[in-house]
Amino acid sequence: MVNATWRSSAPIPPRAGGKYTIRVTVAAPKKPIIAPVPHPVVQPHGVAAILARKEVALEALDVLRGPIIKLPGQVTVIEMALADVPVAGKPPLPGQPWQLVRLNSAHGATSYGLTFNGAVASVTVRITAPDGRFAEQVAK
């Protein structure tokens, strides 16, 4: 389990130019999943033919727009408007391995927190302004 917190002075309510967004990328350790693929009864073709002949390392990128249950994969991307980040105290969705929350505000800065169940190699937080400017921080 990983707990990460950070602060931002980006405005939460939408501005005249649009919404500020947050994108949190959680990368799992680079450990491939080796799974044997059973031979199909029918004659395979294309990708199925390649997978049927050998074990393969599986990698995936799951892009999540808001609070959606993550599918198995190597990277989880959580992206939403800052105004849509729930205030701490609300329970996560059932079966969801992560929870992104807004913790508190003081002196023009807001604290955010991420709880993630699972192995993590790095967490990248990017806050983007409506005009495309962004601030990004990576924690390993």
Rank of each mutant, 00 (worst) to 15 (best):
R133P: 04
L61R: 08
V75R: 11
S9M: 03
A10D: 06
T76H: 06
H107D: 12
T25W: 08
L103D: 09
W98T: 00
R23Y: 01
V2G: 03
I78Q: 04
Y20R: 00
K31A: 08
V37F: 14
G108Y: 15
V41H: 14
K70A: 11
L71R: 10
V42F: 14
E79H: 05
P44Y: 03
L103A: 03
I68Q: 10
A106T: 12
P72S: 02
V42I: 12
R7V: 03
Q43G: 02
A60V: 01
R126E: 14
P94K: 03
V101G: 01
D131I: 00
P91H: 07
A121F: 10
A57P: 00
G132R: 04
T124F: 08
V77M: 05
K30Q: 10
V120M: 13
N117W: 03
I12K: 04
K90N: 09
P11A: 02
T25G: 07
A28F: 00
L93N: 08
V75T: 11
I78A: 12
F116I: 01
I33L: 14
V123I: 15
E136N: 04
E136S: 11
I33T: 11
P38S: 03
G18A: 04
Q96E: 11
E79S: 07
N3Q: 11
Q74A: 05
D84Y: 09
S8L: 07
P86C: 05
L103P: 02
T21V: 03
L64T: 01
R7I: 02
L93S: 10
I34Y: 14
A10V: 00
S105I: 00
G113W: 07
G89D: 02
E55I: 00
V24R: 07
T25E: 15
P32L: 00
E55M: 11
T25H: 12
V77Q: 09
A52R: 00
A129T: 02
F134L: 07
P67A: 07
K31C: 02
P86L: 08
T21M: 15
L103R: 05
L61A: 06
P86T: 00
A139W: 15
A139R: 15
T21Q: 15
P86S: 01
V101P: 08
K19D: 15
G46T: 00
I50F: 14
R133I: 06
R7N: 14
Q137Y: 10
N3D: 13
P67W: 06
P97Q: 02
G18H: 09
A48M: 11
P92A: 04
V138F: 06
R23P: 01
V87C: 04
W6P: 00
L114Y: 08
F134I: 01
V47C: 12
D62C: 07
L103K: 03
A88R: 14
K31I: 09
E136T: 13
K140H: 10
G89H: 02
